[in-house]
Structures are given as structure tokens and as C-alpha cells.
Computed example of a mutant assay.
Amino acid sequence: MKILAIESSCDEFAIAIMDDGKLLCNVISSQIDQHKEYGGVVPELAARLHLQNSGWVLREALEQSKINIEDIDMVAYTAKPGLIGSLIIGKVVAETIAMYINKPLVPLDHIEGHIYGAAIDHNFEYPVLAMVVSGGHTQIEIVNSPMDFKIIGATEDDAIGECYDKVARVMGLEYPGGPLIDKLAQTGNPERYKLPLAKNDDSYDFSYSGLKTATINLIHNAEQKGEEINKNDLAASFQKSAIEIIKIKLNRAIEQYRPKTLTVAGGVSANSLMRKTILELGKDHNIKNTIIPEMSYCTDNGAMIAKLCYEKEMFQNKNKIR
């Protein structure tokens, strides 16, 4: 079964092709350079660039896979969530391909795809406890099968990636700011500045607006007093607070749900402290199947959508046979 998968939810237009679970290609057209001058993603620009780049991405995917488009058995695409204009372009491209080759069209969920990005080179043992961390989402999910996802906690305001980027902008860092804060934090003192643990309660929900406001206020107060902020120390202090609350809540979720697999998904899963934290939690709770995704599968990509589609099809076919 050859699956062509399209991901276009934000500022990447990506196409991957998978053959019976084996990834043949994963082509990504990134727009970071175009959006950088605006300090963030401009939805209208993202959609226009998707339309402009979709043709060469498709040609490159077919060339790398060494197959003809008629060989594709199924076309999958990200239907939600995401920027509406970007999603529409991906949907139209997917519909056009599926109609041309007369093959099934499968709409899929972006967040579910991110979770299965960690399973491209690994196998999930269920239940899976997944920590989703990205620019638009911060949530904990229990995955009992490729068809059974349960959100047990989510952000009430800013997502962690969004918080990183907003703080980075006030620190004078370029977009995207998350990776730059992570880099500065490597040589900073995480105890230098005292920042709050946002929504440190008994729920599995998150709130990053308080941490964002506290960090920005710290910067502004220092500027007004003529004091110099040590960016490395601030980055380390901010990162510690941002991820420590995730560690606290994940630790409690592991004790309650006893997962057989622990994983992290989304763009912020590329963060060094986030990856270290997940591995430490897996070790502390003796979860042998603790998985962090390959760096190439952390940000938006077509491979994760292809993998999700493949796993859903396999699960459904298996249960039909029974």
C-alpha cells in the first residue's frame, strides 16, 4: 500500500510517500525565511506560498520515491487544525491528485499526526502517553489505538511554543525564537531569575500566559531601571519554568495511567531540555518504550501524516478480518 500524504497546516508545505510502512521520501518546503521579517507567520502569505510551491514539492517527492503518481493507492492530507487558508490549499491539492488517479482520499488530524511522527522509526505499545508541545498546542493525550485518542489536559491560553516566541521577540531575538532561547539556555544559569510555575495545580491543564507576562515584565522593569539582563541566564530561567511544569504534570499522569509508551510530539519536542525531561521520566518510571522523535519529524512534515494514515488503515483492516 503506497500512501501519498500532504501536510500544509501552517508555514510548511510537505509531501511524503510511504510504501507498506517504509518511508520513501519526506519533502518539505519551509517558509521561515519569508515570515522572519514579520516576526511570525502571516496566514495569507503562507497560503500563497503553499500554492506556489506545491508543484515542485510533488514532483520532487515522486522523483525521490522513484514511482509514478498512478502507483499511489491512497492520498492523505491534514484536514485540521491549522491556518484555514493553508489547510484549504493542502486539501485542494490532495483532492486533485485523488481525483486524477481515482484513489481514496483520507482527511486526518494534525495533532494525531505529530504523535505518530514518533512512531515512524519505532513501534508504539499501547496505551501511549503523549505530550504534545508546539506553537499552537500544549496537551497531554492518552492513545489506546490509532483510532482512540483522549485529551486529558490542554492549554487554557498561550501554547508553550507561542510563549517561547513571544518572550524571544521581547528579548530581541529573531523568529522563530524557541530554538534561539534553547541555544542561549545551554550556557545560562537557570537559578538566576525567579519565574513562576504557571498553573501548578491538580489538573493536567496548562497556562503559559502568566509565565510569558512575568518574563516580559522582568525585562521591562530592568530596562526602566537601566539594569542589564543576562540573556543566557534569562533564557535558562525561562526554559526551566516552562518545562518544569510539564515534568510535574506528566509525572502524575504516568502514575495514574501507567502507559507502556511515553513520547513527546510537536515542534517543541526538538527542545533539548524537553527531550532530556521525557527520557528522564521514562527512566524514573521504568517505561522501556520511551520515544523521542527524530529531529526531522519534530516540526510539521508529511511523513507523520503518512504514518498516521498507515497505522489507521492497518488497524481497521486487522479488525475487519476479526
Rank of each mutant, 00 (worst) to 15 (best):
A236Q: 08
L108C: 00
G136C: 04
Q64M: 06
E191V: 11
F124W: 08
T263F: 04
W56Y: 14
A118D: 03
T155E: 09
D158K: 09
D202G: 09
L49I: 14
K225A: 14
G117M: 08
S86W: 01
I115K: 03
A119H: 05
L281M: 02
L51N: 11
P146A: 11
N68F: 08
H50Q: 06
I140A: 00
Y310W: 13
C309K: 01
N317H: 11
Y204A: 02
K260V: 07
H285P: 10
E44V: 05
Y116P: 09
Q64S: 09
Q139N: 13
L129G: 02
A154W: 05
A253N: 08
T96Q: 05
P259S: 13
S86A: 15
A235W: 09
N200F: 15
Q64G: 00
V264F: 00
V57T: 08
I245W: 07
H114S: 08
Y116H: 08
L218S: 11
Y193H: 11
I111H: 00
K260T: 10
Y38V: 06
N217H: 14
C25T: 14
N123S: 13
Y77E: 01
I142H: 01
M304K: 06
G302L: 02
N289Q: 11
G178S: 09
P104S: 03
V106F: 13
I254C: 07
D233C: 13
K2L: 12
M147P: 00
N286K: 15
M99W: 13
E95I: 00
K231E: 13
D202H: 15
I305F: 06
Y77T: 05
S296Y: 07
K36Q: 15
A270T: 01
Y208T: 04
K276F: 06
S65Q: 04
L197V: 12
H220G: 00
D148K: 12
L58C: 04
Q224S: 14
I101N: 11
T299G: 03
H137M: 03
T155A: 07
S269V: 04
I89D: 04
I17T: 05
K247M: 11
E95H: 01
R169N: 08
D73V: 02
I142Q: 01
L83P: 00
A185F: 11
Y100C: 13
T277L: 09
G82L: 05
G302D: 04
P81L: 03
G90P: 02
M314F: 00
P293F: 12
E191W: 12
E311S: 04
I245C: 12
Y116I: 04
Y126H: 06
A198S: 15
A198F: 08
K288A: 10
P43I: 13
V170Q: 15
I291D: 06
T299D: 06
E311N: 02
A306M: 02
A79D: 09
T187M: 14
P196Y: 07
V132T: 09
H110T: 09
E112Y: 02
A16Q: 03
S241C: 15
M314P: 00
G90L: 00
G172Y: 12
H285G: 08
G188A: 12
M18R: 03
L62T: 04
E191F: 15
L83G: 02
D202F: 14
T215W: 12
I219V: 13
D205V: 05
